[in-house]
Design a protein around this nucleic acid. Structure first.
Lengths: 144, 144
DNA sequence: GAAATTCGGACTAATGCGGTCCAATTAGCC
DNA sequence: GGCTAATTGGACCGCATTAGTCCGAATTTC
């Protein structure tokens, strides 16, 4: 019941992007600086996030990233799913997996989708704006 | 976002106990037989479950286990917590852990308790009776 | 007193995960 | 038109948590 640290990092990175919102692009190096996450890890995460449609990437010189959608339209559930795959408590609900010995005689199995939906909607109700920090300091300049 | 297979097993075992409800004791061997879970693993799990107060154990010859409370009064959240510890999405919310580089400047941290409560209540709303299978065949005899 | 059963801890193997690096592609700039 | 800077995507490796097993001690019944 704990999300992987990569997913945790992804949430932190997305909030950092949200603070820089206004359309400003930010590259992987800056992002690593601000969040304290090692650069190679940032690279791996932005790769997954942009292929999931949460970030829009501009490559080449002067390139970088920005949110593909307004922060209010991005939920925690989407970020987690982009990194960890579909939210499912057990592996037996994924189709194509048949490594459970009970398979079919299991009285618990039909109830997992209900649990999964409950958990997922709990995460889907939390938008990026809700966790990005109070007012968005888009134009604020750090004291340093 | 996936629970460990031990927690998964624990849920299956608890539902098996719930079906044998009526006060009948069931020993670890029978439980392993019914669920298909290897015996040593069953032993480890019942140990944790009974020390968490979910199962009541009677040792000695003819001993065994039974539910400490009616199935309706036991929730999924309790079972998961008995095996995996407190439900928390990130490790930074546990007191005593200070291994996060951001610590204090992190704008996401104060929002995790809200997420944790949302997820936990989703699991707490699901009782053992809801997943133990339709009618409880307390006195039914398998065809074999 | 002997047999049966739980209890608790220690130990081992392996799967998965976090993390790093490198080659390829693409866009801006001189 | 060539060069530089930046993202992209994949392969790779070491570590850590976890699953699973086993054994000795305690306890109750027959």
């Amino acid at each position: 019941m704990r999300l992987s640290s990569l997913a945790d990092y992804a949430v932190v990175m997305m909030t950092a992007c949200a603070r820089h919102c206004g359309g400003t692009r930010i590259n992987a190096g800056q992002l690593a600086d601000e969040t304290g996450i090692p650069l190679p890890t940032v690279q791996k995460l932005v790769s997954r996030l942009s292929s999931a449609g949460l970030l829009r990437s501009i490559r080449g010189a002067g390139g970088g990233f920005k949110l593909a959608r307004p922060a209010a339209a991005i939920s925690l559930a989407e970020i987690v799913e982009a990194i960890e795959g579909p939210i499912a408590m057990t592996s037996c609900v994924e189709q194509g997996r048949h490594d459970c010995a009970l398979e079919g005689s299991c009285s618990v199995q039909p109830h997992w989708p209900v649990v999964n939906k409950a958990v997922r909607s709990a995460l889907a109700d939390i938008s990026l704006t809700a966790i990005a920090g109070p007012p968005i300091p888009a134009f604020s300049v750090p004291a340093s």
